[in-house]
């Protein structure tokens, strides 16, 4: 079984990891780097629970091989909060009640973060389109969309 040593930036930290060729990015994050915030749902790109950012855009980490991330920048849900301060998105999710069981939340947050980085003032339609690849089986999306909208407002009022 072939192994490969890759250099990948994860949440701003450079990691040098030796991985077998058939390891997915999701497995590397959870099993090798103990970043278990990213969840394993369907392993087929349907549910979005494993969504992380790769070079600034959302991907399903179950559908990317770890070796493919050599030289890439990855952001997981663990990279959102800084110095014990939550990201505005996380704050807004808490306030809006956008979290119930929490399994979809890391993926929801990363998809939402990608949206807000690209489009700080999204319409509800933009929010729903950005989250179409993330399934939630608890809250029914309304509060999640509320959370993203509120986060956009929080960021806008902070930067005024």
């Amino acid at each position: 079984m072939a192994h490969h040593t890759i250099t990948v930036t994860i949440n701003g930290e450079t990691e040098i990891v030796t991985v077998p060729s058939h390891m997915t990015l999701l497995e590397m994050l959870r099993e090798e780097l103990a970043l278990t915030g990213t969840k394993n749902g369907c392993a087929s790109g349907e549910c979005g629970a494993c969504t992380v950012m790769m070079n600034g855009a959302p991907v399903n980490s179950c559908l990317v091989l770890a070796v493919e991330t050599d030289g890439a920048e990855i952001m997981t849900v663990e990279g959102l909060a800084h110095d014990h301060t939550l990201d505005p998105l996380q704050e807004a999710f808490v306030e809006s009640g956008a979290v119930q069981c929490g399994f979809c939340t890391p993926g929801m947050l990363i998809s939402s973060k990608s949206l807000l980085m690209r489009n700080p003032n999204p319409t509800d339609h933009d929010i729903r389109e950005a989250l179409v690849g993330n399934l939630c089986r608890c809250t029914g999306y309304v509060r999640i969309v509320d959370g993203v909208r509120q986060a956009a407002k929080l960021v806008a009022s902070d930067t005024k």
Partner: peptide
């Protein structure tokens, strides 16, 4: 051939495809 992998990797995750060799075009 591994291009984007968005169809190939799911079939490999479920072992519906088990290629001996993968050529990554990325």
């Amino acid at each position: 051939i591994l291009a984007g992998g968005q169809s190939l990797i799911p079939t490999m995750n479920f072992r519906l495809a088990q290629p001996a060799i993968l050529i990554d075009m990325n």
